[in-house]
Design a protein around this nucleic acid. Sequence first.
DNA 1: GTTAAAAGTGGACAAAGTCAACTAAAGGAG
DNA 2: CTCCTTTAGTTGACTTTGTCCACTTTTAAC
Lengths: 144, 144
Amino acid sequence: MDKEIIYDIRQFNRFYTKVLGLFNNQILDTDYSLTEARILFEISERTECIANILVQELNIDRSYMSRILRKLEKEELIEKKSSTIDSRKNLLLLTKKGEELLEKINIQSDQQIIQLFSGLTDSEINVIRNSMMVIKEKFHKNRF
Amino acid sequence: MDKEIIYDIRQFNRFYTKVLGLFNNQILDTDYSLTEARILFEISERTECIANILVQELNIDRSYMSRILRKLEKEELIEKKSSTIDSRKNLLLLTKKGEELLEKINIQSDQQIIQLFSGLTDSEINVIRNSMMVIKEKFHKNRF
DNA sequence: GTTAAAAGTGGACAAAGTCAACTAAAGGAG
DNA sequence: CTCCTTTAGTTGACTTTGTCCACTTTTAAC
């Protein structure tokens, strides 16, 4: 693999680390961390979400996840329902309050995207979007 | 801006957060954190690097930066030379040892990229690279 | 010359993440 | 059914990472 290509990819990674850094710092507007937001998101996206899936999906230590979930439960953003078929597992569900928070975060995140892209034409935005889709698909095809 | 486009972009961001997470965890193979690696990298890339530039560039708290730099100095990876024209500033330089470490990290990072892309054809890799360049350029054109 | 801004440091602390040991339930293999 | 292993989750003790604020020193700006 060509030295120059590797260089470009690493440059992109550094660059996008910075982009994501900016995005993520703004989630702190809500008193919740990026990790917590992602957990809420994942719970809402899944039917039958259990902690261990989140551990794998988000690459977070089990013990740490346990504590985060306990905190979210205490703040009444989620509920744990012990599974009837496998009592080791806890089904994770958003409460009304959790859904509302997630909705708030979603709106904020959408706004952020809009703001970031203001100044670009529709066609430019579409080019970016298509590039993102290409990257994602190619990576997926490979291993992710 | 179209709801669907925003959705795709946010999906990409989540996806790429995961990709970068994997990359970054592997830097820990060297006993140094991603942040430290990036600082070494930035110092090496710049002539006349001073702490405050790093603070802005990497979005790190000044006091935290101060401590990291002290640590790196203590481990003889960098040197601080008080600037003769402005004695508030310290010029940051890599030592031989620092250069060697950075080189090691670079080799490792290149290897990581190669590994990640093994399984893709040259043409697919090039498509990804070009997509990355497009994203970066468009963003830059805008504000970054 | 006085005031303001820039660069950096240090203390105290909070948040984030890690590691290892543990309980309890479920899934086999014989 | 019983022994063994795996899976899910928890807890304690800890380290690392990051933040806030007050402070010093030096330069810049009026």
